[in-house]
Design a protein around this nucleic acid. Structure first.
Length: 409
DNA sequence: TTTCCACAGGAAGGTACGGTCT
DNA sequence: AGACCGTACCTTCCTGTGGAAA
């Protein structure tokens, strides 16, 4: 047993918070062009004119949200000194919000005090919109920023907000809409009516290349780490991983943060390449764990079924094969199995998440089109994330050696 | 060239649940 | 209490797919 005293260990980090996601740096590195386009799109706000609607797109972690926070801060600051300008901004992250209805409710609740929040169901849609217009109309200029709009499955709110004034739903308020999307094809899927209003101004954020990522990391490192806390190859390695994973700065910064944490826990004098590699594995396994924990019971059962084949070295397998095992698992534990179709969509969802792999294959007239499924991650890791389900359903023969620790407890 | 297998996945509609309104 | 509302998750039915076999 070690001692449990806390002591400040300052060998590695000077200011760890700088690497956290909510931090907005003083300067945004490598996004000059995008910032200036975005900046001029916001200019009407300062002139107290009707704001234009803006659509930002580009893959995740390329600075869309950071640029928004950055410019919004400056906009608010500038607005302070303009007497007639009553500027407000609501930023909503649409991750987890599937419909316009839910987004509208979220905006309303953001604008209202904690006493009169409204629930996510119950009201007719038109009523919720009425609430929304009433809230909006209490402001002079209000910017609605919808981050990750591509998670919303319908157009309705995107269509309504830009027209709220024309339709007389709001009278005094000047409402501006900023849509941010990670999905490059999202824009094409929008109806023409929405495209023409939402996409008045578009700003595309390209992925960072390895060189830009390096500059971003170096900028943060100067503030976050003590001098010489990083060995030489750490930044290039993080940048290379980031560039490979679609130029995602947030991911690269996370990697650096995690590597720093690992080094600090080890009381190592320096962050090294090895720490980065450990961090990479840790982040990957975290991603799987959180992904799997959000799945429904039957999706986990489906994954369990596939896992048993992987444990016996029988992967890849087709979905009817998985289904047999799935039915057996359900049967032995008294759970009602789902239909063929539903189990299949669980499989394809797992594939989308990247937890499992699916290779398409076609045997022609002798077998048609098939997908061969296998695990995309270490078997032990997946068995661990499924622990709860396995406890409930029982340990299958094939995975006994992987869950030993569990059954002994 | 045409046929056709065996599944993938789209579409539409159902049901249980948590909510509001009168 | 009972009509009405939105949502998650489900079932049923159906069309799409692509290449080996005929």
């Amino acid at each position: 047993m070690g001692s449990f005293e806390f002591s400040q260990s300052n060998q590695i980090f000077k200011n760890r918070d700088v690497l956290r996601e909510d931090y907005t740096p003083e300067e945004l590195v490598g996004r000059d062009e995008e910032l200036s386009e975005y900046h001029s799109a916001l200019q009407p706000v300062i002139n107290n004119e009707l704001p234009s609607n803006i659509f930002l797109y580009g893959k995740s972690g390329v600075g869309k949200t950071a640029a928004t926070r950055f410019l919004l801060d400056r906009l608010q600051e500038a607005a302070q000194s303009i007497p007639d300008l009553d500027l407000h901004a609501v930023r909503v992250n649409c991750d987890g919000l599937n419909t316009s209805y839910q987004v509208a409710v979220t905006i309303i609740n953001r604008l209202r005090g904690p006493e009169d929040q409204i629930p996510m169901t119950g009201y007719p849609q038109s009523k919720v919109y009425q609430f929304l217009w009433n809230e909006l109309d209490q402001y002079g200029t209000i910017l609605i920023i919808l981050d990750e709009v591509d998670h919303v499955n319908d157009d309705s709110l995107l269509y309504q907000i830009p027209r709220a004034r024309d339709n007389g739903y709001v009278n005094s308020a000047k409402v501006g809409l900023v849509g941010i999307s990670n999905d490059l094809s999202y824009r094409e899927g929008l109806s023409a009516k929405v495209q023409s209003s939402l996409c008045e101004t578009e700003v595309y954020f390209p992925p960072y290349d390895a060189g830009e990522l390096r500059k971003v990391l170096e900028q943060r490192t100067q503030v976050a780490f003590h001098d010489d806390a990083l060995s030489e190859d750490v930044i290039p390695l993080c940048a290379a991983y980031g560039a490979k994973d679609s130029g995602d700065a947030r991911q690269a910064i996370n990697l650096l943060l995690e590597a720093g944490d690992i080094a600090r826990n080890e009381n190592a004098p320096q962050v090294t390449k090895t720490h980065v590699e450990q961090a990479k594995r840790k982040l990957e396994s975290d991603q799987i764990t959180t992904g799997v924990s959000k799945l429904t019971e039957h999706a986990r059962l489906t994954l369990y079924a596939l896992t048993t084949f992987a444990a016996d070295g029988e992967t890849p397998v087709t979905s009817p094969t998985v289904r047999e095992r799935y039915l057996a698992l359900c049967n032995s534990s008294g759970i009602d199995p789902l239909s063929h179709r539903q189990m299949q969509s669980h499989l394809s969802e797992l594939k989308m998440m990247g937890v499992i792999t699916g290779r398409e294959r076609n045997l022609g007239r002798r077998g048609g089109k098939k997908v061969l499924y296998g695990l995309n991650y270490d078997l032990g890791l997946i068995a661990e994330t499924l622990a709860e389900t396995i406890d409930e359903v029982g340990v299958h023969r094939s995975i006994q050696s992987f869950v030993k620790n569990h059954s002994e407890r």
